[in-house]
Design a protein around this nucleic acid. Sequence first.
DNA 1: GTATTTTCTTGATTTAGCTCATCACTTTGA
DNA 2: TCAAAGTGATGAGCTAAATCAAGAAAATAC
Lengths: 194, 194
Amino acid sequence: MSYFEAFFDYIQKISGKLLSEDDEHLLTAHFKPRKLRKRQYFLQEGDVCKYIGYIVKGSAKTFTVDEKGHEHILKLSVENWWLTDFESFYRLTPSRFNIEALEELEVLQTTHAEIEEFLKHIPAFSAMSNVISQNNTIAAQKRMQAINYSAEERYEELVSNYPHFLQRFSQNMIASYLGLSSETLSRIKKNILK
Amino acid sequence: MSYFEAFFDYIQKISGKLLSEDDEHLLTAHFKPRKLRKRQYFLQEGDVCKYIGYIVKGSAKTFTVDEKGHEHILKLSVENWWLTDFESFYRLTPSRFNIEALEELEVLQTTHAEIEEFLKHIPAFSAMSNVISQNNTIAAQKRMQAINYSAEERYEELVSNYPHFLQRFSQNMIASYLGLSSETLSRIKKNILK
DNA sequence: GTATTTTCTTGATTTAGCTCATCACTTTGA
DNA sequence: TCAAAGTGATGAGCTAAATCAAGAAAATAC
């Protein structure tokens, strides 16, 4: 299946609506395939995030670097997710985040202006956007609860929500994503096995 | 100004679009004013959150209670904010949250089915919904970073983002919202004054 | 207007999770 | 191919924040 076929399927599945031939042509004309090698940046801190990418293949991390030079991962993204810093993308402000490919990464990307067009002219696209917004809002509400969770609870939450992350990402990445030191995560796993 | 005038202003301001007379009639017909006294519940854990409310006056807390009986505040809501558990509201699942009035609370409330109608028929409403989704996504992205913040950093973040919260809510509420014990918050404030 | 509940402060103690350090094991790359 | 980098485990010690306890101050209720 080509890049676009999978993308079209995704839109139709999420939105519950069909894409017309015209819709598909419009999307094909304005979403550009882009490949990044492992460790290449999709976005660098300080830049405005001009693009939003639909991940066809591969994975990426969104992270900040603190004064001590430590990395903090905010988001781990895989196939069929959207890749961007929403704040920078919507508001055209310089981003505080970095987005880096963790594996060979293939995305279909476009700009904010074009997204606005799709929303106006493609009903399935706009329905998809609403569904994703809902999902985002719900996910945010959930992750917010993590503030009060212990290290172990955060890990178990991850195991039940995103079990495939464990196969896909190194323990260091997972620890950073959970806001834990990698030593602590190592001990937690040992503890759970007992 | 009546309940509804302020509400209409809000919609027009956020969406950047005008409401027609018909729009206003539709909204007036389907948003019901509701008053809650201090400590009354807008939503109780285990119930499906049937309503979404626009806060005209007053404030509320959204919280969970853990096994030890401790309260954890997830959200503090004031005038011109929307009050609901989005997960329960959108998905019609029993809520894990409680929402309780902290002051005499006046809302304009409606149901999911009616919101769908407004989204379909009132362009300003649907534009507003998109803007709010964007804001939500951005706010969630920001609050997510708090995982790696120290107690003091979380507090300072709050001071700069929501300074009015400090006047409005007790220190206990603020502490719970930040995921800190109230003793810790007390010490932090003392520390900062020096 | 006084009793009662709630809020805030401060001290002493405990603890979860971080930091630092070391070692073994695996993967990557020139 | 073998050096370098990355990954994961484990121990020792440290520290930020929680818990427990008690009293002062403020707000609320009768």
